[in-house]
């Protein structure tokens, strides 16, 4: 490990110290932990126990609840934009079907 890593780690600890003074209660986790896991929670990627703890924190902590709303609003905007265009261009399906008809069977290539 080089010295920049070490420095970062120490800085992280110092900030973690501040964070600990912040608040510990809802769900038994800190606001820092909740902030780190908010995306995993939103994406349903945590195990049931963690989901419950992080969820409790995010929904009941006065500091973190707006953050949850903020991240959800962001994700909704991205989802909405990314789901456009709703459909492939007209004619692409025909083009593919035609290509499939002309195409060989299985394992034509190596």
């Amino acid at each position: 490990m080089n010295w920049t890593h070490e420095l970062r780690r120490l800085l992280g600890r110092m900030r973690g110290g501040e964070g600990a003074a912040m608040q510990r209660s809802p769900g038994g986790i800190s606001c820092q932990e909740a902030a780190e896991r908010v995306f995993e929670w939103m994406d349903g990627a945590l195990d049931p126990e963690e989901t419950a703890r992080v969820g409790t924190h995010l929904r009941t902590c006065a500091h973190c609840y707006p953050m949850l709303r903020f991240e959800e609003a962001f994700r909704a905007a991205v989802k909405d934009a990314a789901s456009r265009p709703g459909a492939a261009p007209a004619g692409l399906e025909d083009r593919i079907t035609e290509a499939l008809t002309g195409s060989g069977g299985p394992a034509e290539e190596s």
């Binding site: 707006p66 903020f70 991240e71 609003a73 905007a77 934009a81 456009r84």
Partner: peptide
């Protein structure tokens, strides 16, 4: 979030950004 919380704590501005810009 920290930078905008005083003006828009729940991120209402995300919804005002046009899709093309997000893409």
């Amino acid at each position: 979030f920290m930078a905008t919380r005083d003006r828009d704590p729940e991120g209402a501005f995300w919804d005002q950004i046009v899709d093309a810009q997000i893409l």
